[in-house]
Design a binder for these strands. Structure first.
Length: 494
RNA sequence: CGGGGCGUAGCGCAGUCUGGUAGCGCGCUUCGUUCGGGUCGAAGAGGUCAUGGGUUCGAAUCCCGUCGCCCCGACCA
């Protein structure tokens, strides 16, 4: 039988695991320490940029995989467009250029010469993709056009944080064109649902789906839908957005098609994006004072095997069992690694892998070899409670069940936490109290954009979204007293 | 760009006030020991003290300038 190779973890994955600042003391410090200690990233020599280390990148690959599969299943194809965009393209859509110009990086010199037209390093690719769409679309038969690209983008942010906001980041951006408003709207909604399904099912993050206020929508969009997640400090994180761009870009780029009635029309376009910020969302939703906690579905390693022995005789017996069991697990497509480091005690390894957030751990020692057992521990249940001795017989099914149970439990824990921290408010004072305590405030909203700005000024909270899940009926705006048709979710956000 | 802090070994820091040619902890290397929740010991390797200038017999230390980074605010996936 072919022997399956055990995936290695390299020294680049490892760091000393000293105590981390507890979340309760300083959540921000906790986050900053944990992303480095867990081996996700390094600071880069370039201000505001991030080096994503192998462990962090494997997490990103898992995110990519989960999304890409869903994009393909909904009929999208991947393509790639240039990093550089002629400056004039950005300027064609008025709202768009206004939204992005403060944060553009622009190349003015190349090949030792001043360029005739400066090239913008893409902050997003609507404009250069629309230029292609113009050539690709002539007939209603060319529609819908469903494209996605995986790319890096650059936004010159003043204040950056690992994964949450960096000058360069990785993401996917979907761009589609449709014959009617209704089709574009259905697409916008479909992709938001794809994001939500990924977040909930794969990342175990119970996001709230909703619509952005005009103030918060994408520059150039008719409107923007969002998935909002609650982090461990109860702040909100916009984790993915889907935009209905109407005919704004189609008109700006003069994209036209002949419909079935031989009438010339502008198509309706959408765009939707999800970035490496999702890594930050996973860290801040699930992490605890011992380190990362990764949902099994996206974890680079779902289980780590720690062999335990104190002399060569024990070692050979233990390693024989480890080899046999790891082959069984690998054959079942469970992502594992074996921690064979010498000179490091098992206790150290336990803490080390807990810092990295590996969902499950299998300890195999001399007693297990004698008894045909192993110790199986789960990351989501701390201490002894999460550890049990199990028979080696039937280990694959047991691990599969355990991983399922961990995935479900993590979503459950995050959902309970979120629901306990969303509060209904019917006065501005009540909102202030809720926001001050760190929670999310939900209330009837009939205010203006200026009202929104004032609330942000006074409380730090913004409208995260108008949730799709509405109580129904009408109410009275908690702020302006006006008649309100929907409730809004307010929170401080990253 | 405003307010604060910091640049000394891979990381975290002391030394700076009171100038005398660099030290501690962790990590790293080797050996031994230990190994079921962060073992212990011994011996090593590793630094143009951010940078440019000045003062001085002598500068990590004093003076002047420059650069960079981090934290807090305004902008944002």
């Amino acid at each position: 039988m072919r022997v399956l190779p055990v995936p290695l973890f390299t020294r680049t994955h490892c760091m000393s695991t000293q105590a981390v600042t507890p979340q309760s003391v300083d959540f921000s410090a906790w986050y900053n320490e944990i992303v480095y200690k867990a081996g996700l990233c390094d600071l880069s020599p370039v201000r505001g940029c991030l080096i994503i280390k192998p462990y962090g990148y494997e997490l990103w690959e898992a995110i990519k995989g989960g999304l890409d599969r869903r994009f393909k299943a909904t009929g999208h194809q991947n393509a790639y467009f240039p990093l550089f965009i002629p400056e004039s393209f950005l300027k064609r859509e008025a709202e768009h250029v206004e939204g992005f110009s403060p944060e553009l990086a622009v190349v003015t010199i190349a090949g030792g010469k001043e360029l005739e037209e400066p090239l913008v390093v893409r902050p997003t690719s609507e404009t250069i993709i629309m230029e292609s769409f113009k050539n690709w679309i002539q007939s209603y038969r060319d529609l819908p056009l469903l494209i996605n690209q995986w790319a890096n983008v650059v936004r010159w942010e003043l204040r950056t944080r690992p994964f949450l906001r960096t000058t360069e980041f990785l993401w996917q951006e979907g761009h589609t064109a449709h014959a009617t408003f209704e089709e574009a709207e259905a697409e916008t909604m479909q992709m938001l649902n794809v994001y939500a399904d990924f977040a909930i099912t794969d990342a175990a993050i119970p996001v709230v789906k909703g619509k952005k206020s005009d103030r918060e929508k994408f520059a150039g969009a008719l409107y923007t839908y969002t998935i909002e997640a609650m982090m461990g400090d109860k702040r909100a994180l916009q984790s993915g957005t889907s935009h209905n761009l109407g005919q704004n870009f189609a008109k700006a780029f003069d994209i036209k098609f002949l419909d079935e009635a031989n009438q010339l029309q502008n198509p309706w376009t959408t765009s939707w994006g999800l970035s490496t910020r999702m890594i930050g969302a996973i860290v801040m939703t699930h992490g605890d004072d011992k380190g990362l906690r990764l949902p099994p579905t996206v974890a680079p390693f779902q289980l780590v095997i720690v062999p335990i022995y104190k002399n060569d005789d024990e070692k050979s017996a233990v390693m024989e069992a480890v080899g046999r069991i790891s082959q069984e697990l690998l054959a079942a497509n469970i992502r594992i690694t074996v921690d064979k480091r010498e000179g490091v005690s098992p206790g150290f390894k336990f803490n080390d892998w807990e810092m990295r957030g590996v969902p499950a751990r299998l300890e195999i020692g001399p007693k297990d070899v004698a008894n045909g057992t192993a110790a199986l521990a789960r990351r989501d249940v701390p201490g002894k409670e999460g550890k049990q001795f199990v028979p080696q017989e039937g280990i694959v099914a047991r691990v599969q069940d355990l991983l399922k149970s961990i995935q479900a439990n993590m979503l459950q824990q995050a959902t309970v936490f979120r629901d306990a921290n969303i509060h209904d408010v019917n006065s501005y004072d009540a909102l202030k109290q809720v926001i001050e305590a760190g929670g999310w405030a939900r209330g009837w909203w009939g205010g203006t954009g200026d009202d929104e700005a004032r609330i942000k000024e006074e409380t730090g909270a913004t409208i995260r979204c108008f949730p799709f899940e509405q109580p129904g009926g009408n109410g009275v705006c908690f702020y302006s007293g006006a008649q309100a048709e929907q409730v809004a979710l307010f929170a401080r956000a990253y």
